[in-house]
Design a protein around this nucleic acid. Structure first.
Lengths: 144, 144
DNA sequence: CTAAATGTAACAACTTTGGTTGCGATCATT
DNA sequence: AATGATCGCAACCAAAGTTGTTACATTTAG
């Protein structure tokens, strides 16, 4: 699987905005976040754009533009973030439909879909147990 | 990600071999399995090659060549299969190291790694609950 | 010796991911 | 009204991963 870094970067950006606001600032810019995450501002804006669609952050344009949390860090879980930035299932089915004249080919997809559904439900439950407040706490707890 | 179909195809191949052997055959060929899975024999051989490295199947060459289970279906879990064919973590870190002079940039990776480790452990536990015997049963239980 | 299948390398097509550039739209401040 | 910083978004690119395909040497029972 091509593991990607979307969830990591999204959590990074949200923790950054959350901390920055607690330090008294109104909004954070994609440029500031990109510097911290060592990536391009457009990458950050793309991700934050999806998080805005999900209602997790807000953006302002014009003078004093930037990003702010739309909800408390403690009320947002990694599941919210994951669903906002990571579409699609964990495991894929066959690229081309298997042979329907074969017993295995006929039954394999419903079988695996049922199994995968249970696994993904467990994954969702686990992601939902971690809030951005937890993430920020862990980040700040790093030694030195 | 990019979700891929390795685990699905591997489970398909193993269920096919297992059922075929229960029907009294010694070995199954990559050609037969590829027909059922609607893919190329080389794709199947590649996957089975990794499963052989993991000790789940055996292969014979020469006349009467093909593949056979090395262990009982009931003793192999989807975790075994997953670990054999899907290397790497579920979630990736930043592509380039984040800014170590930033509090968030400094602490984000250890924080997320700790969180991800817990989630992946849960995923492993869940995969380990399903055996290939369960998969074959579900496959054969498909209606019609 | 032969035929059938594995083992493996090489390559192509396609998709995903992340990075980059460019530019119009926005808007508080002046 | 002009300005300048920033967002919003489209377009494009490079790198990597996935799957399919061809080719061919190797193996081995009969």
């Amino acid at each position: 699987m091509s593991a990607n870094s979307r969830l990591t970067i999204a959590a990074h950006a949200l923790a950054w905005i959350g901390l920055y606001q607690r330090q008294g600032h109104e909004v954070a810019t994609s440029e500031q976040i990109a510097t911290s995450a060592n990536t391009n501002p457009v990458v950050i804006r793309r991700l934050l754009g999806e998080l805005r669609k999900a209602g997790l952050v807000e953006s302002r344009r014009g003078v004093g533009a930037g990003w702010a949390m739309a909800r408390e860090l403690g009320s947002i879980t990694l599941l919210d973030v994951h669903q906002a930035v990571e579409p699609g299932p964990l495991f894929a089915m066959h690229r081309a439909a298997p042979d329907q004249d074969c017993v295995i080919g006929y039954g394999i997809q419903p079988a695996m879909q049922g199994i995968y559904e249970g696994i993904e439900e467990t994954l969702r439950r686990e992601l939902a147990r971690v809030t951005l407040e937890d993430v920020l706490r862990d980040v700040l707890a790093a030694p030195r």
